[in-house]
Nucleic acid binder design. Structure first.
Lengths: 238, 238
DNA sequence: TTGACAGGTGTACGCCGTACACCTACCGTC
DNA sequence: GACGGTAGGTGTACGGCGTACACCTGTCAA
């Protein structure tokens, strides 16, 4: 009996069990209560035991994000791109709404985790399958921002780096690692596809300001159209 | 001489000086280096001295945000709403780009600070001056999200509350304090203006899901329009 | 002269992440 | 069956954090 209890308690820890417990803890007690100590206690284990499964707290957060993003529905095929994107985004939103802490966590990571990149890659793929040029797909991804993830934010915002900014260090474009192109081919394709001019400045990376204004103007144009039509309510005849 | 140094060092601390120093520290060393201890050291003072000017670190962050948001250009009048909004948003973006840590800080605050509310209120005012109904202005504010602040995010996202969610406590709408209506009349007006149906569910607050889909569809429609026109580059003839 | 008070100080507490040395139970190999 | 390696849980300790609380000190009104 004591033996059984022992066995039970000793259900071996694993990276997966740690991540799930962390997500559960954040869900029910808030992300601010997620400490290595609290998490360890929930798992009936001493804090340092966790470090055998995750490198540190940042990696724990990354892992939690991946667990969640992995739950977003796979892309539907054989339907119009617009509907496919719409469904996917709403699925993402649904998933993220179950984990209210997740949007901020995703945004605060220095850069996207593999699961997030995979998701974004598949969204780009959907646009491209719908006949979008890499160029337009690029702008469109910026325009949707992280709304594509069920909330919104500039996803590729270099300013997020948090570090000592200062105009002194222009911070080179930090070319993507080669494995990146292999794993996320569509992202890789649009990464170089931002020609903001006919004389495209090749390899210049992308112009944040341009992307921001592009999205802003698309929004303002859409808003103007509503306004001019005398929009009042989505369904006039209920 | 020693006297002079004394006098200099003793330039009295003030809430304003604390906030400015905090912004400067966050700007140059990153928000993660902003601790009460580091800040105190920068000011040549002992950590606890700060607490005579700000209640705690959260209030410090709120104050820092207000300092920054207060720098956004005042609204231009006598020009078309679309141009007015565009300029204002780009001004906001410019301000926030000087403080890369600010967007995340703004998002992570439980609720908007007075300066943020004042800014949003004035943006709503611009829409209304352009002839928008309170209803449309409401949706449009959601659609722009915090892009209106130079980045993007659902601004009024209740899920941000971080706390123990759980479907068990439906969390009452938490009616706005009465002073709110007086200080931010336009926000107050649109707050109750979300009729998603002809039989408007009065006082129901607003339907996040509806707002999200409204914005998503506006984006997708705009994107579809670009796509159908065979959009390739913003300026075809350089 | 005095006493209130605004504002800076010093100490201490309980939290945090995590480095490092340790122990222990299991494994494949001989 | 003995044995060494290794995966994984433990215990202790350190430096940093936010901040409560008691204290001191200089200024100014009465």
């Amino acid at each position: 009996m004591a033996e059984q209890a022992e066995t039970l308690r000793r259900t071996p820890l694993s990276r997966d069990r740690v991540l799930r417990a962390a997500v559960a803890l954040a869900d029910e007690a808030g992300i601010e209560s997620l400490s290595m100590r609290n998490l360890a206690q929930d798992l009936g284990v001493v804090p340092m035991a966790l470090y055998k499964h995750v490198a540190n707290k940042d990696e724990l957060l990354d892992g939690m994000i991946d667990v969640i993003v992995g739950q977003i529905d796979p892309p539907a095929s054989d339907i119009h791109w617009k509907d496919a994107i719409r469904r996917r985004v709403l699925s993402a939103r649904e998933v993220l709404r179950r984990h209210p802490w997740a949007p901020l966590a995703i945004e605060s990571r220095t850069m996207a985790t593999p699961a997030v990149l995979a998701y974004l890659d598949s969204v780009v793929a959907t646009f491209k399958a719908g006949g979008f040029s890499a160029n337009l797909a690029h702008h469109v991804m910026h325009t949707m921002g992280s709304r594509v993830l069920g909330f919104s934010q500039e996803l590729f915002d270099a300013s997020r780096q948090a570090g000592r900014s200062g105009a002194t260090t222009p911070e080179p474009p930090a070319a993507l690692p080669p494995e990146f192109a292999a794993r996320f081919p569509h992202l890789a394709e649009i990464a170089g596809a931002a020609s903001h001019d006919d004389q495209s400045i090749v390899g210049e990376g992308c112009d944040d300001q341009f992307e921001f204004e592009f999205a802003l103007d698309l929004l303002l144009d859409g808003i103007e159209r509503l306004h001019q039509r005398g929009w009042t309510s989505p369904r006039r005849n209920g």
